[in-house]
Amino acid sequence: MNGPLLKVENLTKHYALGSGIFKKSIPVIRAVEGVSFCVEAGETLCIVGESGCGKSTVARLLMRLVEPTGGRVLIDGTDIAGLKKAALHAWRRRMQMVFQDPYSSLNPRLTAGQIITEPVENFERLSRKQRQAFAAELLRKVGMSPEMMHRLPSELSGGQRQRLGIARALSLNPSLIIADEAVSALDVSVQAQILNLLLDLQQQMGIAFVFISHDLGVVEHIGHRVAVMYLGRIVELAPCEALFAKPIHPYTEALIAAAPVPDPTRARLEAPVEGEVPSPINPPSGCAFHPRCPLAVERCRIDVPPLVPMADGRVVACHVRAPATDIPAQPAAAANPP
């Protein structure tokens, strides 16, 4: 197959606040603003950022759980935004989602076996025997004993529930799994088990992941490439190792510096970045990070910096660290693996 598995072009989502019959202008939340990236088969692209940066909205847009305001989401070259219901239904087989909270994303009245075979039964009828065999196989894939298929979610631990969520996503044999904070609610020892499972599945089945997380340690561990979002936009997209070794965007730098490191001998870093993430209803002009940025210059207050490709294959949106040259900047999709 040619081209990337998933290609996102200029994806935008604005939410209108209220109906505004009597108001002249309706306030709009710019949740996602012109986001572009690609995901290759078998690759893990991580999206990091803090609350309100739009990372979860991107996940929902990819799954078309919400309708985009603009832009395209192409899977194997087909734009899923234009698909009608029936065609979209078929495409959903290619992409599945794993949610953060394994407590609220599993139907409490269904058994584990019913939960994980349900997606397939949307597409084909299974006999009782087939269903049981299939459930057993899926449970084994995620490291659970087949006897568990008769349990209800309330009879399982948090880690087992998350395994179930992953088994459900696997049931349709997808090429891409979107994991939205899939390990964030878990204890570290359980988190390690689930991360190992994801790594194993990728190796065995070649599944690509869009892994959305606020935990930089986890992202550094499992990501191939990382997109850093701030207030609805990607500010830096880079190969994982390069990003952590040498962050270029001041926000990426601040984010990495702020993450606590489990090493008490490490020297304490200087003062953390000041201020808080501004409201997406009324984002700052120019570069949205400028009010908190130690490097901000006049231009940052005026122009939105474009994503500029750098020598090591990353793209960065910063007037100071990555000034645009005369060469016309390529779109963000330039940051592909070689």
């Binding site: 570290v188 088990q193 190992n196 194993d200 550094e220 561990h221 489990p262």
Partner: peptide, 21 residues
């Protein structure tokens, strides 16, 4: 010991299986 080793740590390498408890 198990708790500390199950936390992802770049010094032990990326993309590796983490020691589980």
């Amino acid at each position: 010991q198990g708790l500390m080793r199950s936390v992802p740590d770049r010094r032990r390498g990326r993309q590796r299986r983490l020691p589980e408890i």
